[in-house]
Design a protein around this nucleic acid. Structure first.
Lengths: 220, 220
DNA sequence: TGCTGTGAAAGAATTCACAGCC
DNA sequence: GGCTGTGAATTCTTTCACAGCA
């Protein structure tokens, strides 16, 4: 039985999007504590470390059904498992990677992914003339839809060069994957039944710059 | 004089964070239109392409002072400049990069950054024994604070291996940079007067997985 | 008619206040 | 005391409805 129910009503939970974005941060904290062998972690300690309110931390954790204990906080091991299974692993561990350039390489060498239970199970390249990376096998992009069907994969990471982004996005759109992590930085249209998370260095930096500016405007 | 004032009240604007995160998407759309030579872009066209409401697009653009024209939409060239200067370029173009691994390489090879006006002006590496990349010069991390002071750089991208993350974060915290784009995926503490944007493949994938799950729960 | 701009209403997310438990 | 869990209050975002303009 899937564990994602609120504690009291036993209704499946719609976790608010902002909460969803914070959950990975909590998970990391719990994992760190697990490594040092600590058993309990309080919302206030987390809040201090992350720079936002303790009540928010509790609400967020409560939203996925995490259960803490008065005076001590949240049990490290159990909460780790709960967050880990909610956030990925388990149902969504198998992921396709589209692209073989520097960005795709960065994804492949990210230790965090496998630590969290995600596994890149196949790599695809849309450009037939792309230099062939020596260290891992990859397939032409056209074969992706077929493999999605055969393997039941539901997640894909799009990390191709900008010029190939649209072509690749179209293939993905028709492929039947449920969600795409779009790292291309190009504005791509996906059917709206697909889940899309867009992330790019550029957008991140822009947001940061805007942030700094806003902070200064308020503070000074 | 800085142009970031609301049109009517002439008060400096506090752009809502969710809006701030969407602005880079609009900017990309405008840039694309600029390339194909089109002069006008309507909020509804944008909305269709991005998959959210037209009213929201108008509110967001309005929040940075963009001004559209009835029946036609928003002027491509002018809005490009406005968004571009609000989001980065101009005041924040010079950026330090910390790290020389695959992730840092991906940042360096990202065409989007320079296209948007950001420039990596120096690269730092905390690990004295890291393999020396042949193609670009870099400096030991200890020199960063000094260079921040001399060059007045305000933004840094943190892209080191996880094991060096904390050490690097400490140096950054004392260095006087105003904002950090943290790509390490490690939970790091920064002084709260610093602006921090965290981004990682892992968090992105986790969010995506949660998203897919939530979508399914609602839809079916 | 076709689109923007805006004040008002609805809906979410965050914060507060306090009850409960060890 | 120290910390969690929760309903109520507040604040922030989004959406709606319509006025205005070319």
């Amino acid at each position: 039985m899937s564990p994602y129910y609120t504690q009291d009503t036993m209704e499946p939970l719609g976790v608010p999007l902002p909460t969803l974005r914070r959950l990975p941060l909590y998970l990391r904290l719990f994992e760190q504590k697990a490594e040092t062998g600590e058993e309990w972690l309080s919302s206030e300690a987390m809040a201090r470390e992350l720079g936002f309110g303790a009540i928010q931390v509790r609400k967020d954790l409560g939203a996925v059904g995490a259960l803490g204990s008065p005076k001590r906080g949240f049990p490290v091991g159990e909460t780790c498992r709960l967050l880990g299974s909610f956030l990925g692993a388990e149902d969504f561990s198998e992921t396709f990677l589209v692209g073989t350039g520097p960005l795709a390489r960065a994804v492949l060498s990210d230790e965090g992914l496998e630590k969290r239970g995600f596994r890149i199970v196949a790599i695809f390249e849309p450009d037939p003339r792309a230099p062939r990376p020596s260290d891992r096998k990859y397939q032409p992009l056209e074969r992706l839809p077929e493999l999605v069907k055969r393997m039941g994969t539901r997640l894909a990471i799009l990390a191709v060069e900008p010029c190939w982004a649209e072509a690749a996005a179209e293939v993905l759109a028709r492929s039947g994957v449920a969600g795409v992590l779009d790292l291309t930085g190009v504005t791509l249209a996906f059917p709206k039944e697909m889940a899309v998370v867009r992330e790019s260095f550029c957008a991140g930096l822009s947001t940061l710059a805007g942030n700094v500016r806003a902070k200064k405007a308020r503070g000074a």
